[in-house]
């Protein structure tokens, strides 16, 4: 008698366990985000201009705007985001394990990350390249003169691999000083523990802007790699990937079509001559419904966050301390690479 009770209890425990396993696979991220009531977004722990909390603890930046835009598309409210600051070493694990729903954390799109790490890049929001920064009094004008230098480098990034390749190919030697985070790299560089600091050129500019005496440091002209930075999600949930991809595309399309946070509401209310603007803002067609979002998701993104150009200018543009020119990140019509597939 007692034994049967015990055995059936064990069997029940086994069933519970297998039920829990089955639940893990095949759930929709979009439904989970809606049910949770907020988007869980993985961001950089602190790169001025791209992602950093301001004096009041509110996250601000170019990458943060992408999280805000996705939240605006889903909830109509850009504030419904829970930010998780992630170091480069833990970001993919955090995404794969479901701790965050998406990463908007200056992450380079590479073959092995896309294919082998089972991640899905949903576009490029910043075309970058790896550069070098040195103190001016070092008297160096080219990266080829850096033989024997000590180089501060964030571990677990593509820059670590590019650096090894660059110095090997050019027959130069160097001493790596691996550091765990962007801030730590800055501290070591400013203390003189390394001669050179290398990372993406955008982050170098952002970091130089935050120094006390930015003019004592120069960014060398060489760009040694292609670093297309973009948002990414887990493999295997294409619907969720589409939401993130078309949120970014909506921001780019809006800039291409001249829709801004100032005029979008007006355009949506009165309609325009251009059918693509109408589709983007939800006046025509059922594009939102196809994504599982409100039909005016484009309008929400643009009125509440802004178009691509507005976000760029406000966070990292030439009027900000970071002071980046559009360069490669200008629209394709203006000689850059930023281009959105049509809203049709």
């Amino acid at each position: 008698m007692k034994k049967t009770v015990f055995l059936s209890a064990l069997a029940a425990a086994g069933l519970v366990a297998s039920g829990a396993m089955a639940q893990d696979s095949g759930s929709s991220t979009l439904a989970a985000v809606k049910e949770h009531g907020a988007l869980k977004c993985g961001v950089n722990p602190g790169t001025p201009g791209f992602a950093a909390p301001d004096a009041n603890g509110v996250w601000k930046g170019f990458d943060v705007d992408l999280c805000r835009a996705v939240a605006a598309a889903i909830f109509g409210d850009p504030e419904k985001v829970e930010y998780t600051p992630l170091t480069s070493a833990v970001r993919f694990t955090a995404l794969s394990s479901g701790e965050v729903d998406m990463l908007a954390r200056n992450t380079t799109w590479t073959f092995s990350r896309d294919v082998d790490l089972k991640l899905e890049f949903t576009g490029v929001n910043y075309y970058d390249g790896q550069g070098f920064m040195v103190p001016k009094d070092l008297g160096v004008s080219s990266a080829k003169e850096l033989s024997g230098a000590t180089v501060c480098i964030e571990t677990g990034t593509t820059t670590e691999l590019n650096l090894a390749d660059f110095f090997r190919v050019n027959g130069l030697d160097y001493e790596p000083v691996p550091v765990e985070s962007f801030t730590e790299a800055q501290n070591q560089f400013l203390a003189g523990a390394c001669d050179v600091y290398t990372t993406d050129a955008s982050a170098l500019a952002a970091s130089r802007a935050s120094f006390e005496t930015p003019n004592d440091y120069v960014v060398l002209p060489e760009i040694i790699s292609k670093e297309p930075l973009g948002p990414l999600v887990r493999h295997g949930d294409s619907e969720w990937g589409d939401v993130v991809r078309w949120t970014l595309n909506a921001m780019v399309s809006a800039e291409e079509l001249g829709v801004t946070s100032a005029n979008a509401a007006d355009m949506a209310a009165n309609g325009t001559e251009n059918p693509e603007i109408n589709r983007l803002l939800g006046g025509e067609g059922e594009l939102g419904a196809m994504l599982g979002l409100p039909n005016d998701f484009g309008l929400n993104i643009i009125t509440k966050v802004g178009n691509y150009g507005e976000s760029f200018e406000a966070n990292i543009g030439e009027s900000t301390p970071v002071g980046l020119a559009r360069g490669l990140n200008a629209l394709w019509t203006e000689g850059g690479l930023i281009y959105s597939p049509p809203f049709r």
Binding site: F92, S112, D116, T155, G156, E160
Partner: peptide
């Protein structure tokens, strides 16, 4: 060791290698 950038087993196999290979 990784806290100060000394590349021990945790920083190589459990750090950079793990990150690059996933």
């Amino acid at each position: 060791a990784l806290a100060v950038g000394y590349q021990d087993l945790r920083a190589t196999l459990g750090g950079t290698t793990m990150n690059n290979t996933g």
